[in-house]
Amino acid sequence: MKIAIVKYNAGNIRSVYFALERLGVEASITDDHDLLRAADKVIFPGVGEASTTMNYLKERKLDTLLRELTQPVLGICLGLQLMCAHSQEGNTDCIGIFNLKVKKFEKKLKVPHMGWNSLQQVRGRLISQDVEGKFVYFVHSYYAALGENTSAMADYINPFSAALEQDNFYATQFHPEKSGPVGEKILKNFLDL
């Protein structure tokens, strides 16, 4: 199985690579269009700022490429947000796979939302029933609202989409690569799709 991790100007790509390695899978990290199209599965990770990252993706036409992929695609953290329609961060038009808006948390509690929070109302193929109520690791200041594609919700300041799922596109706001055995289960679910 060929797993490709989208290479771009984002942090934590190495962490995703190591997490897959722990599951016995050697991924390639690439921004080559042909290699990404040919992969069995594509992971789109990311920690960073939305507008800068979108510009980077557009310059390399990776935004169009991601939208056109037909194999399973997993966005992580900023990856989830950039797969939505629009982000309040830098007032950025995003890739638009999920028809959702990304907003900044109101500072009613500490922001960023940092640490372990539980998954609620899980459904779908990526976020399997056995992780209902389990804790996963989040670090983010912006969130995708709830929508019909929400496959897990979490609650911090307000309920938000902890995971999304539509056709061949999957995404998590949390970091499965840093979420201990629960994260490993979710990554394994993705590999098994």
């Binding site: 190495r14 390695e21 722990r22 690791y137 970091h175 690569e177 840093k178 994260g183 490993e184």
Partner: peptide, 8 residues
């Protein structure tokens, strides 16, 4: 550490 530890 990054290779072997699955938490932040």
């Amino acid at each position: 550490i990054a290779e072997h530890v699955n938490i932040p």
